[in-house]
């Protein structure tokens, strides 16, 4: 069962950019595309754990800042021919606010 945790607003994230959320699962990267879609991934590239939140966002993908692996924001899959996957997390927008789906029983404190 997921709790939907309020992590802030769409405006808190720059377009074609990302912010991070500290969670019990580790750091989660929350991305915003040019079309104002949002996605959440565990903030670790499947290659060498590079912080994906620091990468360049393009379309629905992000390029890892360490070695340029390209990761799909929706699935967490690395773009072929690289192989690997980082974990996507559920994220929804409601009335301009963003809610991250985490296992039940978690609370939130805004930084």
């Amino acid at each position: 069962m997921n709790d939907w945790i309020d992590i802030g607003t769409l405006a808190d994230i720059p377009r074609l950019g990302a912010r991070t959320v500290d969670t019990p699962l580790g750091e989660v990267a929350v991305f915003r595309t040019n079309e104002d879609e949002v996605f959440a991934l565990i903030n670790k590239c499947p290659h060498k754990n590079g912080p994906l939140s620091e990468g360049i966002v393009m379309g629905r993908k992000v390029a890892c800042p360490l070695h340029n692996w390209v990761i799909d924001l929706n699935s967490g899959q690395a773009q072929a021919p690289d192989e690997g996957c980082t974990t996507p997390l559920p994220l929804k927008q409601e009335a301009g606010r963003l809610y991250l789906g985490l296992a039940a029983g978690k609370k939130v404190a805004h930084a």
Binding site: G8, T23, V108
Partner: peptide
């Protein structure tokens, strides 16, 4: 905003 997390969940 670059330098702070958006939120901390604990």
């Amino acid at each position: 905003h670059e330098f702070q997390p958006l939120a901390v969940v604990s």
